[in-house]
């Protein structure tokens, strides 16, 4: 009788009690879940990358370095979503509340994201206080820009995708060499090819058309 009761209790416990902790991967292995869901499937806003000064501890161990600082992000824990932790880059600017972003950053609204798709500055940079994109808890910090900003529209965006320059530098300017050198060189190589092609063929075609007019006239006179 005791054995039977014990067996029934064990069966009931297996059915009714929650899974053992090893099955609760969200608690047991947060960074694994981050990598297996957010990074691969595009499920976002559950985990965040948090900057911590522990990279030096894993000097040389690239795998551990990569996984370091990834932890669960929820309402109570998230620093990137909580703007309390941000510095205010615009602190001290007179009449700041009455200014628009483009008053001080006029060129930054001239990009395809803003003009074509109507994306406002705050949709990416967030509300007040607006911190530098290099601030630890900024959503635009390169460590989390892809998950917290890009993926709003580009589901599945990864860190490499966030390297696309939304505020693209003018490719013709020499200063672009400092930010995206390939863009500068590719632009001028392509322009050189186009200019050489037209420098040869536009006068060639024009001269040909003009010459044929006289050629025909001469032929007709001979006839």
């Amino acid at each position: 009788m005791r054995k039977k009761t014990l067996c029934l209790l064990v069966i009931a416990a297996v059915i009714l009690l929650p899974d053992p902790s090893i099955g609760q991967e969200e608690v047991a292995s947060r960074y694994y879940h981050y990598r297996s869901t957010e990074m691969s499937t595009g499920i976002y806003e559950e985990y965040e990358v948090r900057p911590r000064g522990i990279h030096a501890l894993f000097d040389g161990d690239k795998e551990r370095q990569r996984d370091a600082g990834i932890s669960r992000s929820d309402e109570s824990e998230s620093r990137a979503w909580n703007r309390l932790f941000l510095n205010d880059s615009h602190r001290g600017i007179a009449f700041y509340e009455y200014r628009r972003c483009v008053d001080c950053h006029p060129g930054n609204a001239q990009n395809r994201h803003t003009v074509r798709y109507g994306i406002t500055c705050r949709q990416c940079h967030g509300g007040e206080p607006i911190a530098s994109i290099n601030h630890y808890f900024s959503r635009l910090n390169p460590i989390r820009q892809h998950t917290h900003v890009c993926s709003k529209c580009h589901s599945g965006a990864k860190a490499s995708f966030a390297l696309y320059a939304v505020h693209e530098p003018n490719p013709a300017r020499a200063s672009t060499i400092d930010s995206i050198p390939f863009l500068f060189y590719a632009f001028w190589i392509m322009v050189a090819i186009a200019v050489l092609t037209f420098a040869l063929f536009i006068p060639h075609t024009f001269m040909w058309i003009v010459r044929e007019i006289f050629h025909r006239e001469k032929k007709q006179r001979e006839e």
């Binding site: 990864k158 490499s160 390297l163 320059a165 693209e168 995206i180 863009l183 590719a186």
Partner: peptide
């Protein structure tokens, strides 16, 4: 961008 860095899209 999974193959090349994102800025290559600009280029």
């Amino acid at each position: 961008s999974a193959i090349m860095p994102g800025w290559t899209i600009n280029v």
